[in-house]
Nucleic acid binder design. Structure first.
Lengths: 315, 315
DNA sequence: TCTTTGGATAAGAAAAACTGATCCTAGCCA
DNA sequence: TGGCTAGGATCAGTTTTTCTTATCCAAAGA
């Protein structure tokens, strides 16, 4: 096994050869001429043959030096490029998040993340099947629900906030339809997203009600569109207190049965990633940030649920 | 232009990754575990991401580390192999020498060179047109004559000894032919090598003689064969006092006209090489050795010529 | 001849790398 | 359960390396 010459001397020689002199190399490496001179001499002593011919006006490569240079340039270049690529990769945080959670919760907060961690370049995809995007496998961290079935065992999970559900519609719609009791929902238009059939069932089950069998229902590709339709007065949506928090607080959505709040059987919104990625610095930074940012939502849901429980036991 | 990480740290990481642990690396690099640990940490800090996952029973490469390792191994390998190749190359001394000079002068002395410089592996070729040998252009140093026409100007030359010529033949031949004066040569068989026609002419010119026009002449491919034929009593050769020194001293060759010694117009036997090779350590070693070894021959020819000059002016 | 360019060199200062000792953690084994 | 072991991390102190600063020096050009 051939032995490796002193590496810093190799670098000094490579720079000197590339610049055609020690002065150029000393500028590139931020050292003095003397340092380069000593490095080159050391390397020549190590190799046992000269790399430069010393002339009055500088140096000229020997044949051996001429043969050595391209090998070094290429080798160092490969190392530098790969190190750079890996660094870029490490500073790029690839997040995958379903469209509803993304638009209604994550996106409005992301600029705060960028301010807090300006070194990370965040790439978000909301489309698990995107062509032009990145493979979900390649993502560093993803948003999901806590009780997703068949979760691989070495995946780490952190719940950001529980999913608390209650029917909601535009205030005008509520007035027009005169919604007094859950049975009145049969007269309404129910606005679905792909998850909400299970959730409606959980909601009726939770409060011992008959399944809701509306006259009209519409299905939207995600929770955001269903919610927007509800705000426009199209019908009733099973709203997430957190994801629809803004609409509730602005009065754009009203809850006809504010006491009938249940949690989703799929669990709350959570972050998840494989063990190694989970503990990488960039993902650790993101999840700690996300957990902090979700604090008010966790508190809000918690307070609401406890208040209802207290009221229920009091009644 | 991507920046190069600390090179010694890279080497430490590469060794550690290859050995699957810091202890193996510390053995390979002859340092302690702690040194490897610090190097790896330094590199991780520089890159901004971890290369190893630390576990109770040692370390495991991260994805990034796994991607980095083969690049480093390959780059370091290329450097080490090329350095090794160049070192071997530098220790190989390629000498080109005409057959006569080679057999009659150089070869008998070469074992002394090997003893003096055991690190050099000497490759000698006597054939400028050899197929299996090496290109004369690739030779490090060559033997020639000092006054070769059209010599390229940046070629350095060192004359080892002058070429002093006088006719010579076996003592029996001399007796049988009763050689008394140069004119008697016309009765002899003259033994030629490719150079000797010019030299005969120089010899006759030098002493104001008519050109030798022998009844019989034979031509040999090199001076060694012509000399051997002369020793066998075939005819007369224009002998070089140095190259035929052994035969003269052993009495195998006799000079019919010992006072008629001239120097070759082509000059003495010399070493030559391009400027750069000339000053390389291995060639410098060889030529200084060769010059020393040629000392007795220089002295012998010098003494002989001065003696003749003194005698000539006295007469 | 004098100046400029570019490298070589040496002494001392600064930085780095290394060692040796000690600490720490997780698995292992009785 | 607790000691044992393997393998790293860390720290203080020392050794080595490396760098700088300040001269030299040689050759080319003005």
């Amino acid at each position: 096994m051939p032995k490796l010459p002193p590496l810093n001397a190799l670098r000094a020689f490579e720079a000197a050869a590339r610049h055609g002199g020690f002065i150029g190399a000393s500028a590139e490496l931020n050292v003095t001429r003397g340092a380069i001179s000593r490095h080159v001499k050391l390397l020549e002593d190590h190799l046992g043959f000269p790399l430069f011919v010393r002339q009055a006006q500088g140096v000229r490569l020997t044949d051996a030096g001429m043969q050595f240079l391209p090998v070094l340039t290429e080798a160092f270049g490969q190392i530098a490029r790969e190190a750079d690529r890996l660094s870029r990769n490490a500073s790029e945080l690839r997040v995958i998040c379903p469209p509803g959670t993304s638009i209604r919760w994550l996106l409005p907060k992301l600029d705060r993340f960028q301010k807090a961690y300006p070194d990370f370049r965040l790439r978000l995809t909301t489309d698990f099947y995107a062509d032009g995007g990145f493979d979900p496998i390649e993502a560093d961290i993803g948003f999901s629900v806590a009780n997703w079935p068949n979760r691989s065992p070495d995946i780490e999970v952190l719940t950001l906030f529980p999913t608390a559900l209650t029917p909601a519609c535009a205030p005008g719609y509520l007035r027009d339809m005169a919604l007094k009791s859950p049975e009145d929902l049969s007269r309404c238009t129910v606005l679905h997203d792909p998850r909400s059939k299970t959730d409606w069932r959980a909601w009726t089950d939770r409060f011992g009600l008959a399944p809701v069998d509306p006259g009209v229902s519409q299905t939207f590709p995600n929770i955001d569109m269903a919610t927007k339709a509800a705000v426009m007065g199209v019908g009733v949506v099973l709203a997430d207190l957190v994801l629809c928090r803004e609409e509730f607080e602005a009065g754009a959505l009203a809850a006809p049965f504010p006491d009938l709040v249940c949690q989703s059987p799929l669990g709350g919104v959570c972050l998840l990633a494989g063990h190694e990625k989970w503990h990488s610095p960039k993902v650790a930074a993101f999840r700690s940030w996300a957990y902090d940012v979700a604090e008010p939502d966790r508190v809000m849901v918690h307070d609401r649920i406890s208040a209802l429980n207290a009221e229920g036991s009091k009644a």
